[in-house]
Write a protein that binds this DNA or RNA. Structure first.
Length: 446
RNA sequence: GGCGCCGUGGCGGAGUGGCUACGCAGCGGCCUGCAAAGCCGUUUACUCCGGUUCGAAUCCGGACGGCGCCUCCA
């Protein structure tokens, strides 16, 4: 049994796959008005790894991560750059796809664009209007928040304590300050707009996700995810729209990942202290970043700085070292307890931190044994973490390196240690580390 | 002010009503010509104060401290 923390019930909920072991996951993706930062990568990694784990457990998983390419922020970012919002969104979408591809976790099964989902959005808004949960004013359409008796049940807020949107634009047109926009009439300088029964304009942010999730996964799919900063109002609104428009809950389990914390606060874009994803990947590589994310429980806030990254790199190196000593084939039966603990931890609210503890116990046990042990268990565990590459053979040293190694060995045997160390330094400068083992010296990539 | 989360050994970070998490760093030891890698060890770690209990770091109450959201930030 797999249990995951559900925000709505504020408790662990058993994952109940649909027919054919189907599990649909929808995770809110980025709004493409700039290069994505490492904070954006956390949900991408968390839900990509969750998909791998659920697939490993025999489920037929469909992961959907949307791209919000129609949004106020994009208009605001495009204007000073002198480009259209459509151009900016297209450019940043391409960057986003490249930056996340560099994580080496593959792509989600679907990555819908808001701009290509207008039909479904209009359909959902129409359903809401028909049921009297939404109203049009001067080309805008607003959701009637107080018409949903369950509004607030996801984020656990009392409706009378909300001050959402009281100062924003459109206040004068709303029946109630709490109401939020489903559709915004086209304004001066806005270059993307579509025709709808209530006027030309574009969708609001929340309705985009409700509609795209429904289109690709249907209503009532298994897992809806995203950063916990989206719990309110974004997910609350998504849930309300589908509940009122379709008469059913959008998702069964609402999962929220914790924020990344930089020294001095959260990595919010508004704080201007974001570290861009591609810069981190260029600097430390995807292995270390994934290890960092997997090192803590997904719901916890996570410290993020160069030291944490370096430490994650050291953990990666430990696994890579251990993998060098392994043999082909099955792992010893008496080490399976660690493998089992690894998967049990993931089944208990996807606890990658505890799972990694079990993986490292497996590694230590493997290192302890005199004989090389089969790598099957380790490959299986690393596969779920997207780190199966760590067991791949590294670069092979070429003939020139081996010649130097032999020269060093000859010097060693002649007890000319000054010469032996000089040759070792020479190899080090070429990027090779000498390892003296029971079967003689060998070379590994530094 | 409202809702919620969190305070664990030098650092990061799991977990739990009684049994070594794990990793990184440091130190000591084994191995080694020396290293590297690995292994072993590293002596009351659980913010504070009450309470419940045979027993609490783990449950309850309070205090102090940090953080998120409540303004379309993952």
């Amino acid at each position: 049994m797999i249990r995951l923390h559900d925000a709505r019930s504020a408790a662990l909920a058993e994952l109940r796959p649909g027919p054919g072991e189907r599990v649909g996951i929808y995770a809110c993706g980025p709004t493409v008005y700039g290069r994505v930062h490492v904070g954006n990568a956390r949900p991408f990694v968390v839900f990509s790894l969750l998909k791998r784990f659920l697939a490993h457990e025999g489920h037929d998983v469909t992961l959907v991560v949307n791209i919000t390419d129609v949004n106020d922020k994009i208009y605001d970012a495009a204007r000073p750059l002198g480009v259209t919002s459509v151009q900016l969104a297209a450019e940043m979408t391409a960057h986003y796809l490249a930056d996340t591809a560099a994580l080496g976790l593959g792509r989600p099964d679907a990555e819908p664009l808001a701009s290509e989902s207008i039909e479904g959005i209009v359909d959902l808004i129409a359903a809401l209007m028909q049921r009297d949960h939404a109203y049009a004013v001067d080309g805008d359409v607003y959701f009637r928040v107080r018409s949903d008796a369950e509004y607030g049940s996801l984020s656990h807020r009392a409706i009378d304590e909300m001050s959402q949107g009281e100062d924003g634009e459109g206040t004068a047109r709303k029946e109630d300050p709490l109401d939020f926009a489903l559709w915004k009439a086209q304004k001066e300088g806005e270059d993307s707009a579509w025709d709808a029964p209530w006027g030309r304009g574009r969708p609001g942010w929340h309705i985009e996700c409700s509609a795209m999730a429904e289109q690709l996964l249907g209503v009532g799919f298994e897992i809806h995810g995203g950063g916990n900063d989206l719990a309110f109002p974004h997910h609350e609104n998504e849930a309300a729209q589908t509940r009122m428009g379709r008469g059913a809950e959008l998702a069964q389990i609402w999962m929220h990942n914790g924020m990344l914390q930089l020294r001095g606060g959260t990595m919010g874009k508004s704080l201007g202290n974001a570290v861009r994803l591609h810069e981190v990947l260029d600097e430390v590589g995807r292995d270390a970043l994934i290890m960092l994310f997997a090192g803590a429980h997904y719901r916890q806030p996570m410290a993020f700085d160069d030291e944490r990254l370096a430490e994650a790199g050291a953990r990666i190196a430990r696994i890579r070292e251990a993998a060098r000593r392994l043999a082909d084939g099955e792992s010893p039966a008496d080490m399976r307890v660690h493998r089992d603990a690894f998967f049990a931890a993931l089944a208990d609210d996807f606890n990658t931190a505890t799972a990694l503890g079990a993986l490292f116990e497996w590694v230590r046990e493997a290192n302890r044994r005199g004989e090389p042990v089969g790598r099957a268990d380790l490959v299986e565990m690393l596969g779920v973490l997207g780190l199966e590459n760590l067991v791949e053979a590294g670069d092979e040293a070429g003939a020139p390196e081996h010649e130097l190694l032999q020269r060093r060995e000859a010097a060693r045997l002649a007890k000319d240690y000054a010469e032996a160390d000089r040759v070792r330094d020479e190899l080090g400068a070429m990027g090779w580390t000498v390892r003296d083992g029971p079967e003689g010296p060998s070379l590994v990539r530094a």
